[in-house]
Design a protein around this nucleic acid. Structure first.
Lengths: 201, 201
DNA sequence: GTCTATACGCCGATAGAC
DNA sequence: GTCTATCGGCGTATAGAC
């Protein structure tokens, strides 16, 4: 029993370290990119020694992969939740935009890392450890909309690309400071652009 | 006279080397990114020795900058030409999409480098040697359209972002192989999405 | 003037000191 | 078990050989 508690505490500490490392790595990857971030950078920012870092992760690539899988899963969960709690395709898409804009303001680094970084740099091997790409769910929503007639009958890849293009580009403009106000201030206009593009008739 | 000819030939050779270096660099930057491309890579691909490369360019950053300025200028020229030879905003925007799609098929590496690479990596210093960002002209076209009433009265930054977002994302999908057919086959659908989004009433 | 060999610094990863 | 000192490798840039 005592031993178990002891190990639990140890495990908790380990998890804390892990989180600190991932937090710092996320921050650095988002700012400078994967290749331009060194273990030394991560060490300095997280105040965790090199050996501890290598104790937690096999190598630098593993850190980026873990981050990606973790964040992509959370994104996917949120999108599933949206698909579940809304009925019309229009409502679902609105909720997606709302979520993305909100996330951009709340956790800009997450969006920088998920949307704007070259995943190819650390995901060379195709397999994503059973992790679905973060926006597959959006495509599903759109395909359903085409079937039900809520969305225009155009190749779903194109409609999906259009939707993601508008949203991602807008977020990019916000993240680089071109858009000066929080994204919710632009929501109505952006949503109007999106919906005009894709709604049926 | 003879000397002049001699020097001309020499100059031509130099220019040829320069072009070969830039060609190879473009190819590599587009495929692997700036940071992951080494001088050794450029040397191998161009069959030009290290010393010759450093004879032409001060350092690696200079190569990327030269490429960027060169390509951005050409893009800007094309966009000016489009603004000149078309009258309505609709026609101009159509021509822009057409140009971008065509360029993607003809010179995919150029588009990869101009649209999808982290310019921040080699353009840290703000000054671009008197080179306008490649798509400023598009924003001008759109602003004019808003004034004349051809385009919806929405913050021009958002409309511009919407337009660029759709186009760039579509190009990205083509470049990564998701879209299997040449882009001209998708032109009508994409243009329809774009124009539905931005046209006034 | 052209190329090859090398200096120098940085990074990822480890192994040995405490 | 932790940390720090270091190793090997690579990448940029240069300096010296031809």
């Amino acid at each position: 029993m005592i031993k178990e508690t002891k190990e639990n505490i140890k495990q908790k500490e380990k998890d804390e370290f892990r989180d600190q490392i991932l937090d710092s790595a996320l921050n650095l990857f988002a700012a400078k990119g994967y290749s331009n971030t060194s273990i030394e950078d991560i060490k300095r920012k997280s105040n965790i020694s090199t050996s501890r870092i290598y104790g937690q992760f096999k190598n630098k690539q593993t850190i980026a992969k873990a981050l990606y899988v973790d964040l992509a899963r959370r994104m996917d969960d949120s999108l599933c939740e949206i698909a579940r709690t809304n009925t019309t395709v229009r409502e679902r898409m609105r909720a997606v935009v709302d979520l993305m804009f909100d996330l951009t303001e709340q956790a800009p680094d997450v969006m920088r890392f998920l949307l704007l970084s070259r995943h190819q740099e650390f995901l060379l091997d195709g397999e994503l450890q059973g992790c679905t790409p973060p926006f597959d769910k959006v495509k599903d929503i759109i395909m359903k909309g085409i079937k039900t007639g809520e969305i225009r009958r155009i190749d779903s890849l194109l409609v999906d690309g259009c939707f993601q293009g508008i949203i991602i580009r807008t977020i990019e403009l916000r993240l680089d400071g071109t858009l000066e106000k929080p994204l919710d201030r632009y929501f109505n206009d952006v949503w109007s652009l999106v919906w005009s593009a894709v709604e049926a008739i």
